[in-house]
Simulated scan of single mutants.
Amino acid sequence: MNEPAEPPTGGDGRPDAATEAFVAHRNLLFTVAYELLGSAADAEDVLQETWLRWTTVDLGSVRDPRAYLVRITTRQALTRLRTLGRRKETYVGSWLPEPLLTSPDVAEDVELAESVSMAMMLVLETLTPLERAVFVLREVFAFDYDEIAGAVEKNPAAVRQIAHRARAHVAARRPRGATSPDETRDAFEAFQRAVETGDVQSLLDVLAPDVVVIGDGGGVKQAVLQPVVGADKVARLFTAGLTRVGAVMTVEPVQINGGPALLVRLDGELDGVLAMRFDDGLVSGCYYVRNPEKLSRVQQETPVTR
């Protein structure tokens, strides 16, 4: 969503207090909504709804505009999650989050980068909507339990229990082994070279034994309908895919959701985005989004922040 084309102004011609507060926190609100929904388009709709409700609030009764706006955004996102869940039930093939082109400074904020990574977004998908909201607000944005309780309409004691349960669930699914920035860069560059040359052995050298590939074509473009697991199968998948393309393929390294990824083009036209997860210096996850409806945010940066 864009802010109002002509923001309300006071008598001195400046935006009014409601507009100033919303604009000041807009990127944060988008990030909250996106982490809860995995869809930039739905996050923008939530921001539109947040803005409409915010304009009806008596600002004199608001002590903390940031917390109040996040509360509205969270409630709207939780409502939309139910609709999104029904859409996913009829989705063709695997569902992946909508990828975002992000700026280099997102990668420098390790906690933010992890929280918006494709791998973590898939972990968040395994939580209940309420667990997801509590986890994101607490672990990513550091809201206190009282503030979260107001946002999810539960008491603080219940929120603490939900947070504990969500943390344990996520911890069991986090990356297994820490990978340094240098190791990540080396593995990514080696993977890119192997894909460009079609060198099977070079691919095997950089793939974790239990690497998984998940493809999302949304029923519009061809993609693997079920995850492909194992270094041998994944290496064959990539090299066989390259030989069948019948077009000039080029890849461009970019930052997607705070981590290294490749924009894949065929004959100069954008074909998809390949994001990756790294464990112990090896590629352990490949997430290939080909659904055209999910590629609108990969050629211009989307601001995300905490």
Rank of each mutant, 00 (worst) to 15 (best):
S284E: 02
A172P: 02
Q255F: 04
G215F: 09
M249T: 10
L270Q: 06
L28K: 07
E131A: 10
R277H: 13
R297Y: 12
M120V: 04
S284Y: 01
Y34T: 00
Y34R: 03
D16V: 12
E89W: 06
D144Q: 05
K221R: 12
T73Q: 07
R297N: 14
T90D: 14
A240Y: 05
T128A: 13
F188C: 04
R53W: 00
A247V: 08
R14V: 03
A18H: 15
V248K: 11
Y68L: 00
L84Q: 03
L204W: 07
S39L: 04
R71C: 08
L96D: 03
T79V: 14
L274E: 04
I214C: 06
A168E: 14
E89P: 00
L100A: 10
L242G: 13
D146I: 01
V228S: 00
P8A: 05
V123H: 03
A261V: 00
L124G: 06
T243M: 09
Q226W: 02
A163F: 07
Y34K: 02
N2S: 14
V228C: 01
V211W: 06
A151F: 08
L137W: 01
L101N: 01
L266S: 06
Y287G: 02
G38H: 12
L204H: 01
A194F: 10
H164D: 10
M1K: 15
V283Y: 08
P97N: 05
F278P: 07
L52K: 09
N257Q: 11
R75Q: 13
D144G: 05
E301Q: 12
A187S: 12
A157V: 15
L270G: 11
D280T: 02
V273D: 01
F188D: 04
E153H: 12
G38M: 07
E89V: 09
D109E: 13
H169R: 14
N291V: 04
H169D: 11
D146H: 05
D45R: 15
R132S: 02
